[in-house]
Design a protein around this nucleic acid. Sequence first.
DNA 1: TCAAAAGTGTTCAGCATACACCCATGG
DNA 2: CCATGGGTGTATGCTGAACACTTTTGA
Lengths: 278, 278
Amino acid sequence: MSNEAQTQSEEAYLASYNPLDYPPIAACVDVLALTIRDRKLCVLLIERDRQPAKGCWALPGGFINADDPADPAEVAARVLALKTGLGRVSKATFGRVHLEQLGTYGAAHRDPRMRVISIAYLAFAPDLPDPETGDYGVAAWVPVTELGLPEVLGDRDVTQAPGTSKKLAFDHAQIIADGIERARSKLEYTPLGCAFVNEPFTVGELRSVYESVWGEPLHASNFHRKVLSVPGLVTAVEGKDSTRANPRGGPKARLYRRGDARLLHPALLRPAREDDIR
Amino acid sequence: MSNEAQTQSEEAYLASYNPLDYPPIAACVDVLALTIRDRKLCVLLIERDRQPAKGCWALPGGFINADDPADPAEVAARVLALKTGLGRVSKATFGRVHLEQLGTYGAAHRDPRMRVISIAYLAFAPDLPDPETGDYGVAAWVPVTELGLPEVLGDRDVTQAPGTSKKLAFDHAQIIADGIERARSKLEYTPLGCAFVNEPFTVGELRSVYESVWGEPLHASNFHRKVLSVPGLVTAVEGKDSTRANPRGGPKARLYRRGDARLLHPALLRPAREDDIR
DNA sequence: TCAAAAGTGTTCAGCATACACCCATGG
DNA sequence: CCATGGGTGTATGCTGAACACTTTTGA
């Protein structure tokens, strides 16, 4: 079979093709945006002002239009720009937001309206401005500890009172739990932590990120040495910390930018816990 | 707002809801099934007997019907049962196949027919029977080295001649490359290798799996010690290898089953390569 | 002067690696 | 008896974790 003949018959096939022969369903993109505010890991949520799930927290998202030339990652970036206030900040800031696909959620009745396949994206950003009110309700950065998700608290902070009693819409609790676990894991073997701080940053700021995401204190001096020893994780820049001096004194810290490594060798492992097997 | 009032208004909303207000697109599930045959990592492919992409290799897959109560993972299991010959093998074998979501591919024109969102699943199985001819063409287990994917060969086996010149349909080359990289990575920190061997297995068989997937020889005695030292990776069973004796002599090896660990601590790291940073 | 945080030195235990070696088995 | 592969012992070098300590700053 020649290539031309194949192309021709493919064209003939497509001319006679009827899209409605295939089952139409809806596809949307939901974005789980994480940042750190006041040393707490926060997720961007919208309090829905309409049905379904009116009054619940929901992840920002949008449907994928069949005619939209954007691929899902581009849709996610668009959602993020509209819902975080990132549309107002500089392009440089926008470019530093890390976006990656988390997973796709398509159970039969996860949305009461119709069959909806949701492609979830995970975004990591340094402290961003307060979000604007979006098309579907009021947006806010919510500390993950206030969501009362057992998967997130992990038997650790169970004494912590859930500050928000609002429920999460659809299956978004599961998406959030999956995303946070992904973030915790990727801190270990990628330079993801650098995505949560503004450059240039100090090693102490970076350590604070790790402590916030993992939810446990780290050994400061060993962390310091480890970060500097991993090739490509950070690169030193001239000057020392000036604006962000220590609240009650202490030496001015050196400043760094993220390096060019994409994978960390060796990894920055979180402290081993007792329930080691699993 | 009381819960009842909210429920009532949600019901009223849904009664007035028209699904066609939302943009219909198609969603499908593609399965990247990996196994090891003759010490080579192989992927299940179908030679398409129809347009589009007639004559190309394609991953087995199926569309998700909006009325289908199955979630995407169940669709993937169904696809696998239909296309691998797993429908003929015992339920015990079927239950031991590991299935996980790989990622979702939804670029605008990845399928010439219409906008199709493809949810890719990754399946790992011990050596399975030859596949049957499916609805869309002849299925076969194809060694990944014959696909000529640079991402897979990784500058290592470039001398190896690509045995198959057939092209891959749609964006399936990308899906395969992503899936193989996922498999290589997960060998390190999960008991995934055990999914590729029939139980009970010997440490040598397990080592052969690692060597096939990583594409490089391992130090036999250190591997042996390491496997036994990782808690929960394998558990010993009574008896020694009888049927699968060494071709040219050697002691009979002890037999093991996979343990109950889900994550390996410490991990089984692949040998460090020179291009360490990336 | 004191508290807090940055950063360095040092020790020690555990692990990965390499190599030597013995054993069991089938040809 | 010899090649092959299973399995154990052991020395070595590196890394992570812990601890002590000095330095730098602001209150």
